[in-house]
Amino acid sequence: MLENIKQLLIPQSRERYGIYPNVLKEVFSQLSRGVQIYIYFTISKLLITLIFFGEALKCELSESHSTATTLILHSIFLLYHEFKYKMELENIEKLNLIQQLLEQQGMNLEQIPDRQTFNKLTMTVKKSIFSQCPDLNRESKFLNFLAQVIIIRFFIMMLDSPFNFNMFEFYQETCDAHLLNVIFIIVLTMFLEFIFLYCLVFVLVIALPLLCCIQIYRKGKQLYSIRKLKRYLESIPPHKYTGLDDTWVKEDKNCCICMQEYAHNESILQLPCSGQHQFHESCVRNWFNISNSCPICRQQLG
């Protein structure tokens, strides 16, 4: 038993997977290193919490003690889960089965692909290991759920505490101050592990509907400005073009919307923009069906 624990704790090199093709050797080694780091991190988290929890037991029992107890249990279950996952990464039969499945899919396992393809392959291998061991999948979901419960519970405890959101000053006045500080740091690291999930929930539940409402508001505001502008333009009398010597036409004798020269007796409308630009009446009215800015200077007229 001790030999097995020692084998799981000591980092393994790529040579351990030397029987496999280059790609799988790199994938298995990367997964093994990731689990190894996470095991060390969880052991450190467990030991620190136990040390400060033992010191805080001298104080009167409080909600921080129950939160620390939950953290300790979560760390123990997490260590068990990670050790079990590490053993699956050492299970030659299952790794051989993964190799056969990938070869049947026609994947080249000798030449290491680009980083994006390699990351996808790593996730595929990890899912394959979890699919071959349903207990790992159930344990992972349970531990994720428990971690989220701990995070939510701790933040509720913060809100209920009379420290006016100045947490560290409040903690320094309590008997189990060090334990609370440690719990805060650990819960913060747990929260960072789930930050992408929370960000996704925030985007789907809050940000996405908010962006839709803002877009609808902007579109409605633009349509209102266009209708208001069109009513204003109806009050401006158009000018009848009389020919090349028409001094009322200040610019070129053509409309920059349709790129056609003004014909005799055509209606020309002058916009109230800073440049007082002129266009065919029909062209500029059609233009303001989709925009409320001058076609030349882009000045907002709504």
Rank of each mutant, 00 (worst) to 15 (best):
Q111A: 05
G34Q: 09
I72T: 03
P113Y: 15
V27Q: 13
S64A: 05
I98E: 04
S66M: 06
E60C: 05
I129K: 11
K141F: 07
D160E: 13
S64C: 02
E103Y: 06
K127D: 08
S131H: 09
T49Y: 02
V149W: 08
L73V: 07
H81W: 02
F118N: 13
H65S: 02
I51S: 00
Y17I: 13
E139W: 08
I98Q: 02
N96F: 11
F41R: 08
L24C: 10
V35C: 10
Y20H: 13
R115Y: 04
E55M: 12
F41A: 14
F118M: 06
F52W: 07
L146W: 05
Q100Y: 02
L61M: 06
S128E: 09
A147W: 13
E103K: 15
T70E: 13
E15K: 13
K94N: 14
I39W: 00
E55Y: 12
D160R: 01
S66R: 13
Y17R: 11
F53W: 00
P21S: 11
G106P: 04
Q132F: 08
K84M: 06
K86N: 03
G54E: 00
E88K: 05
C59M: 15
F83T: 03
L101E: 15
V149D: 15
E15W: 14
T42D: 04
A56P: 07
E82M: 11
M123S: 06
L102I: 00
L121K: 02
L71H: 01
S13D: 14
I92H: 04
Y17V: 15
L46F: 00
K120Y: 09
Y17Q: 15
F154Y: 15
D135N: 14
F53A: 00
K84G: 06
K126E: 12
F77V: 08
I98K: 00
Q111T: 13
E93D: 06
S29D: 10
N108G: 01
E90T: 14
I39F: 02
K127Y: 11
Q132D: 12
Q116Y: 07
E110A: 01
T42S: 10
I150M: 09
L136S: 10
T49E: 00
T117G: 09
V149Y: 12
F155Y: 12
R138L: 14
L47E: 03
L79V: 03
S131P: 08
Q132C: 06
E103P: 01
C133A: 13
A147F: 08
F130N: 11
K58I: 00
T124C: 08
I152K: 08
P134E: 14
L61F: 15
K84H: 07
E139Y: 06
S75R: 02
K94E: 12
E15I: 04
R16I: 10
S64H: 01
T67C: 12
F154I: 06
Y17E: 12
S64M: 02
F41K: 13
S29M: 10
Q99A: 10
E88R: 06
I151A: 07
Q116M: 10
N108T: 01
L159R: 07
S32K: 05
F28H: 09
L136A: 13
E139I: 15
Q99E: 07
T122K: 15
V125M: 10
M158V: 10
S75P: 03
F145H: 11
F130H: 08
L109H: 04
S128L: 07
K126P: 06
F154W: 14
Q105P: 04
L50I: 02
L71G: 04
